[in-house]
Design a protein around this nucleic acid. Structure first.
Length: 745
DNA sequence: TTGTCTGCATTTTTT
DNA sequence: ATGCAGACAA
């Protein structure tokens, strides 16, 4: 009896088919990770492939670690020399070795979203771009998609010919690139793009990696974008032993440039590709699986497949609608508590999934109050916190003096009396001479107009030089301590006794732990721990990587983060039109966006193994205002026969609304299903309470237009449109939400 | 130069 | 509700 006997026929076929391109269409819960690990084992064990020649690309570091571990368990040796990593960390590894060929230093810095924003602001200021017209956000996303599509600044400039707005964007892109290079920095997209450029321009490097990676596997292939596709094709170009695993129904990263065509057209790209479908689900009960199938059925243009399972029917899916988001959170948390207290489950069996990170807060509050251990994945990244970024900026400055952003960040943190004017002068001097900001600092004596700040700058330069010298002989942790000590960063926080300062100190302590952990892990692998190495690790960790299956806590995260995970009991919260599917996708004119939301819903449902609870609230606070939402359209796509709406629950007595039971509400919602498609969802937002707080015939005051008479109120979209006859300003139509009209008695 | 105030926009999802 | 940029005073 071999380990491969435990696989089903299809899975075996996928494992044994080792030569040439292979597309595995793996439905949710069909055991694709098992297939991949067994395939690697098979390659090593039976085909005699050197582990060194295998590359497996996963979506997260966590998945990579798990895969390595599982291969290790099967094969027992050699797994450490397999390359298992994410696209990004693989690229960094390659670039650290060869990027000098593209004119960068190999100790380049990686810019995160925050740094990108700072840089783009600088660029806009420098180019005198009107950021009212060109939002930094959209500029960045334009640049990002250009990089995803392998479009260089030169190309974009050419394409923009004759279009003023496009030319502006191209100009920004060009300058942004220039500055990145001057700072010896790469952004996330660059990691992929530069690697592709490297392989395209350096035949010997390409040859080396093609030879090295004779067998390539890519997980979550449906979420790859054009650069990633290109990268994989380059690497697999010689041996063509490329195995990709994916599920078009789980493609949820289009907004990040993921190109679903990569999977749909795999057979066109590789005409001799073998296609294997894995359709047996081992994860969920048939009830859950049916619900998922029913929902995803509403999408068009998918690869036909039908998931089935031998698992039992299991329990019905629970559905609950609540008056408010508070009630919703209350119910879920106490439901979890009940089930744990009755000994049926442990905390770690539960996951609460939601559409947006903002929804986590309310659950967190309830968890704290109820004393339920929990872990929130995502949200504000640990490394994005101010104190962490500050200290990292010191490390970056020591590591890569060209990183102007880092130097400018810390030159006056903690306060040294170096102000904006001084920084501006130094920057001008640096720009003029085309030297880095830090070089200008070192030459501060010759910068004009510095005046009495000179001494302060010189002592700052001396401080950094001191760190650089010390860094040569110190470990990263020691250097960090020295920085904390010499700058008085912690001291300053300690003097501050409020709660925020306290949590900052804790974070700094946590950072120190992470540095020590990094150094220990290097030691374990017999590698030298370096400052660059640590900074790189920091840049590429996702929050999900810190998820630990062993710890007994409830996990809270977005649906996106939940991809690839499974839990015995899943709560899908906030199933309301406007939340999920999000308001953006409902109002977008592209139906494809709604389909992506539906796939997200499919992903969410299929995370559940045994129990699934769907909840929504009639009323919830969003951005400081109360929103009234209809239940999600996706709910209506689940057959009523799979649902249980459970016992009735308390309604708030203060509300004047008709008292309809949850069950009736649900029933009504399903009954109107046929009409729902043609009628727009009725939802609206008001600043407080119900209605705009005034009526036709009332006198109101507007902050700018003065007093006037309300002549008409019409309900439109998510707001009221109010027509007011102003005494002095004439008749205006405006939305109640924005106008903030005040009734005059 | 620093701190505070005010008005303004912002809100999907992430390696 | 929160966070940021710009204005202005200390």
């Amino acid at each position: 009896m071999s380990i491969y006997d435990t696989l089903n026929d299809r899975q075996q076929e996928a494992v044994f088919y080792t030569e040439g391109p292979l597309l595995i269409l793996a439905g949710a819960g069909s055991g694709k990770t098992r297939v991949l690990t067994h395939r690697i084992a098979w390659l090593i064990d039976q085909i005699g492939v050197n582990p060194w020649n295998i590359l497996a690309i996963t979506f997260t570091n966590k998945a990579a670690g798990e895969m390595r571990e599982r291969v290790d368990q099967i094969v027992g040796f050699g797994s450490e020399s397999i390359w298992v990593s994410t696209f990004h960390s693989m690229c960094v590894r390659i670039l650290r070795r060869y990027i000098d060929r593209l004119g960068y230093d190999t100790n380049f810095t990686i810019y995160d979203a925050d740094d990108q924003k700072t840089l783009i602001k600088d660029v806009c200021k420098y180019l005198q771009i009107d950021t009212k017209m060109f939002k930094e956000r959209s500029l960045l996303s334009a640049i990002s998609s250009a990089k995803d599509e392998l479009v260089t600044p030169e190309e974009m400039t050419l394409r923009a010919e004759g279009d003023w707005a496009k030319k502006k964007i191209a100009q920004v892109y060009t300058e942004y690139e220039k500055q990145l290079k001057a700072n010896n920095a790469l952004d996330f997209d660059d990691l992929l793009l530069k690697t592709v450029q490297l392989l395209q321009t350096q035949p010997d490097v390409l040859e080396y990696y093609q030879e090295r990676f004779r067998y390539i596997m890519v997980d979550e292939y449906q979420d790859t974008n054009t650069v990633q596709f290109k990268l994989v094709s380059l690497l697999a170009g010689k041996y063509q032993n490329l195995c990709v695993v994916g599920d078009d129904d789980q493609s949820i990263y289009k907004f990040r440039g993921a190109n679903i065509m990569n999977i749909l057209n795999f057979e066109k790209e590789y005409p001799n590709a073998k296609v294997i479908k894995l359709e047996q689900n081992y994860r969920s009960t048939s009830t859950i699986l049916n619900a998922a199938n029913e929902v995803i059925r509403h999408n068009t243009g998918r690869k036909e497949k039908s998931l089935w399972t031998e698992n039992g029917e299991g329990e019905k899916i629970q559905f609950r609608q609540f008056d408010s988001a508070y009630d919703e959170a209350d119910y879920i948390v106490s439901d979890i508590k009940d089930k744990v207290n009755s000994g049926k489950r442990e905390y770690k069996d539960f996951a609460i999934l939601y559409r947006t990170n903002a929804q986590s807060r309310i659950f967190e509050e309830k968890m704290v109050v109820s004393n339920v251990p929990y872990k929130i994945v995502g949200g504000v990244n640990f490394y994005a916190r101010r104190e962490i970024k500050d200290l990292l900026a010191y490390l970056k400055t020591v590591d890569n003096g060209k990183d102007d952003l880092a130097v400018r960040r810390i030159i006056n943190v903690p306060k040294r009396g170096i102000g904006l004017t001084t920084i501006g002068r130094v920057q001008d001097y640096a720009t003029e001479r085309e030297i880095s900001f830090y070089e200008a600092i070192l030459a501060a004596g010759s910068v004009p107009g510095i005046g009495r700040a000179l001494g302060k700058i010189e002592s700052f330069a001396a401080l950094i030089e001191h760190f650089k010298a010390e860094g040569e002989r110190m470990s990263v942790a020691e250097l960090m301590d020295e920085i904390i000590d010499a700058t008085g960063y912690v001291e300053e926080l300690q003097a501050d006794s409020d709660e925020e300062a306290e949590s900052r100190l804790e974070n700094i302590e946590e950072l120190r732990n992470k540095i020590v952990a990094y150094e220990e892990s290097c030691e374990a692998e017999d590698e030298k721990s370096t400052l660059s190495g640590f900074l790189e690790q920091v840049a590429l960790v996702a929050d999900i990587d810190s998820l630990d299956e062993e710890t007994d806590y409830v996990v809270l995260m977005t649906l996106h983060s939940a991809k690839g995970l499974e839990f015995p009991h899943v709560y899908l919260a906030g199933l309301e039109d406007g939340i999920f599917p999000s308001y953006m996708t409902i109002t977008a004119d592209d139906p494809a966006e709604l389909e992506e939301e539906r796939r997200l819903c499919y992903v969410g449902i299929t995370r559940a193994k045994e129990n699934l609870t769907l909840t929504c609230a009639r009323r919830r606070m969003v951005h400081g205002e109360t929103q009234y939402n209809k239940m999600s359209r996706f709910l209506k796509e689940i057959p009523l026969s799979l649902l249980s709406t459970g016992a009735l629950f308390k309604k708030e007595q203060t509300e004047e609304e008709p008292k309809v039971s949850a069950y009736r509400q649900a029933k009504q919602a399903f009954a109107t299903k046929a009409f729902a498609a043609t009628k727009p969802a009725q939802q609206f937002t008001v600043t407080k309470g119900k209605g705009p707080g005034y009526d036709v015939g009332d006198r109101v005051r507007h902050i700018k237009f003065g007093e006037g008479l309300v002549t008409q109120i019409t309900e439109g979209g998510r707001d009221y449109e109010v027509t007011v006859d102003f005494d002095t300003a004439g008749t205006k139509k405006m939305f109640a939400m924005f106008a903030k009209l005040q009734k005059i008695d």
